[in-house]
């Protein structure tokens, strides 16, 4: 496949960025999107140009490092996958692909396509933890948990913190991410201890960091590589209300 690329280049956090056009040739339709980016970069290095900076790590859809807003969608034109799991067969030969970084005030661009997602770390620090007593290791089966709750908690815990929800949301809202974290704990007995403080602290942090407000548009759910459900957002709204009035 031959492709035209329109890529956001920005030298540093404060630099003024711009789109630059590139071309790649002879790309296998079985190649992954990031392999295509690697080939482009090899080309650029050979020509003595600066390679395009982009985030990646595991390349198997579990770490949440890869990002990229590809042709108007976070993680590209496939659903329920990360960019590292995206294949070139999803594109047409000769197509122009526009590649942009996540755009949100709390996710500033560091370089080219890499954004600073430490706002998510701050959110976790604000409440995404549980108390654990020191001493002997308790028997994992000693605390009864209903199967339904366990499943829901596991579904919420599947969030890999990639930020696609923020990138997709027209309001750059972090509600899906935060609600997944609130839910994964709130559903289990171990998370109940800090439940009331957690939801209030995480919501306050989310507001402080400058994420937008939810308008129940649900683009987050449509783009989440782990298919986190917006029912988590409703659960968080519920948890928050109960915490506030009690």
């Amino acid at each position: 496949m031959d492709l035209k690329l329109k890529i956001w280049r920005q030298a540093s956090r404060d630099a003024k960025g711009k789109f630059v056009d590139y071309e790649v040739h002879n790309i296998s339709s079985d190649a992954s999107f990031l392999e295509m980016m690697d080939l482009l970069n090899e080309d650029l290095v050979e020509k003595g140009e600066e390679p395009v900076a982009f985030d990646h790590d595991c390349r198997e859809g579990i770490c949440g490092m890869c990002s990229l807003f590809i042709n108007g969608r976070p993680h590209g034109p496939d659903s329920a996958i990360t960019t590292c799991q995206l294949h070139m067969r999803k594109f047409k030969d000769g197509e122009t692909i526009v590649i942009e970084p996540w755009r949100a005030k709390p996710f500033p661009v560091i370089k080219d396509l890499i954004v600073d997602r430490s706002a998510f770390d701050e959110l976790i620090q604000a409440g995404g933890y549980i108390s654990v007593s020191t001493g002997g290791v308790p028997d994992a089966n000693a605390i009864p948990v209903s199967r339904e709750k366990a499943e829901l908690a596991m579904d919420a815990a599947a969030c890999i913190g990639c930020g696609a929800c923020v990138a997709a949301c027209k309001n750059a809202s972090a509600m899906l991410f935060v609600s997944a974290k609130v839910s994964q704990f709130a559903l289990l007995p171990q998370g109940k201890i800090e439940a009331k403080e957690r939801v209030q602290k995480m919501v306050a942090k989310m507001d402080d960091l400058g994420f937008g407000n939810c308008t129940n548009t649900y683009a987050c759910e449509a783009e989440c590589p782990k298919e986190i459900s917006v029912t988590n957002i409703a659960r968080m709204n519920r948890e928050f209300f109960v915490a506030k009035i009690s």
């Binding site: 329109k6 956001w8 789109f19 807003f69 042709n71 108007g72 969608r73 976070p74 526009v98 942009e100 755009r103 949100a104 005030k105 709390p106 997709a168 027209k170 309001n171 750059a172 809202s173 400058g210 994420f211 937008g212 407000n213 308008t215 129940n216 548009t217 649900y218 683009a219 449509a222 783009e223």
Partner: peptide, 21 residues
Amino acid sequence: NWIARGKGYKRKALSEESIFS
């Protein structure tokens, strides 16, 4: 919400979402 986006995207967002929202 407008402030939270900051600099917008070049390519129009194509995510599936509730239209009237």
